[in-house]
Design a protein around this nucleic acid. Structure first.
Lengths: 254, 254
DNA sequence: TAATTTTGTTTTATATTATAAAACAGCGTT
DNA sequence: AACGCTGTTTTATAATATAAAACAAAATTA
């Protein structure tokens, strides 16, 4: 499997940009990549030609281009899970006042496809397009649990169960045990395992062929949602998830 | 200005995907690009490595990857015009019941950065990330009009004033005259010039240094919004646009 | 069921093409 | 006025992308 060096380098340049880094000088790109300025220059100009990079004419600095926005939105639209799930996320958020999410699996991480902010609580971390680890989130657990043993095996091979908060599960066996429980219950909980003070519940969404294609979740603040209320949310969530699965053609096995 | 062939080709591959084409076989990519299969294969695998392309394991077909979504959303977030304008778009939409937009200039086109759907009317064409021509849209006219003569000159050099509807302006002089009028009025109108039955009004948003950085607009259906009502919308829009400009540090010259 | 076409992938030789050194030009600072 | 910083252009070299051909496996067709 041959990797094209020029392309690989260009894509690595795009990765240099993140929440904190929206602008970069060519000198800095060159330094961070440890590649000669002139080489970077050629790559940047080609990226710019296609709109993936823009150059600030005033400062000479480079930033991400709007082509990424265009293509990103194109993706979102083509995923019909999102269209189907949208109104249910809104409904759940209105019923509970909490923030709801739609997440799918990509590689060994979850990716937020949609988010509806609740009136009562604003959850900071999540954002459409952002990624979330499988072992520390309710959605991650659900996306992992409802798969075949083989799939779970490959997912967890070389998987780094890193610690995020005090409550994060960091042992593989404990995680596997948790996944079993999730499968029995039909939903998963993240109790401050990803962010202190935040408790979430997630439920799976099944496709017509019975495989999990997504998860929806409700995020709550420990300080404002007690156990009783949280349990009610679980029931609401499960029901809504089942409705979505049915819309997608999934029929529960009797 | 040397263009890197491998990178250029890879980005052209990404461009093959659009609203109607969400999946492609390698054979078809090869045919449409007129490049050998094995070459395309290497490019695809490198794109896949970075998440810009995904392969459907079942069918072997290639589709866009979620990295595009991630980067696209990152862009949106980094543009603070959007954050500032958001609540005003919502307010305008609630007051009028119509769909409102936020658009910026990129190259020789406008790009939708935000959209708030009105209760009364759903405008099909627009979508965040999508592009719109300068001569056929209210936002395009505004983004063009409020620039220096030199800037307008370079924008309209080699510009194709193509016909879209019966009402589209297709003569350069007529367009220049229209731009003058827009500058005097402080707003622009698109009367079914981009889509039959749709009439829009747009107003400019100025940065602290006095340059136009964006345009906001209200889109209406001719069939449901009469001239009197439309005039009221213009007043509302202008006022809201001025508020946004002031938030961004722009002070009206007296 | 067997043959045939089509799929995506791998390998390999060739020369095209990406690469980086060095020189350049334009600013802002010292 | 001299220096240090931008980003850019040019040019020689050889490393790297390229495409032909062979491959394997799946989907059609006969």
């Amino acid at each position: 499997m041959p990797i094209i060096q020029a392309l690989d380098r260009a894509l690595k340049i795009l990765d240099l940009f993140d929440e904190h880094t929206t602008e970069l000088k060519i000198t800095e790109i060159s330094a961070r990549m440890e590649i000669h300025k002139s080489t970077i220059h050629s790559l940047l100009k080609t990226l710019q030609l296609h709109g993936y990079i823009n150059q600030d004419m005033e400062t000479g600095r480079y930033k991400l281009g709007l082509k990424l926005l265009e293509k990103g939105q194109l993706m979102l639209q083509s995923l019909d899970i999102r269209t189907v799930a949208r109104k249910h996320l809104v409904a759940l958020s209105e019923q509970t006042g909490q923030t709801t999410h739609l997440v799918i699996l990509d590689g060994k991480e979850g990716v937020y496809l949609d988010k509806v902010e609740g009136e009562k609580a604003a959850i900071r971390y999540s954002r459409i397009g952002r990624r979330i680890s499988l072992h520390s989130s309710a959605v991650g657990k659900v996306l992992t649990a409802f798969r075949t043993k083989e799939e779970i095996d490959t997912l967890l091979r070389n998987y780094d169960i890193f610690k995020i908060t005090e409550a994060t599960i960091t042992e593989k066996n404990a995680f596997l045990h948790e996944l079993n429980q999730v499968r029995e219950q039909g939903y998963s909980i993240d109790n401050q395992e990803n962010e202190p003070g935040v408790r979430c519940v997630a439920a799976p969404i099944f496709e017509h062929n019975g495989s999990v294609i997504a998860a929806i979740s409700i995020s709550t603040l420990i300080s404002t949602v007690n156990d009783l209320l949280f349990k009610q949310y679980i029931a609401l969530l499960k029901k809504e998830a089942e409705t979505i699965s049915q819309t997608l053609g999934f029929r529960q096995v009797l």
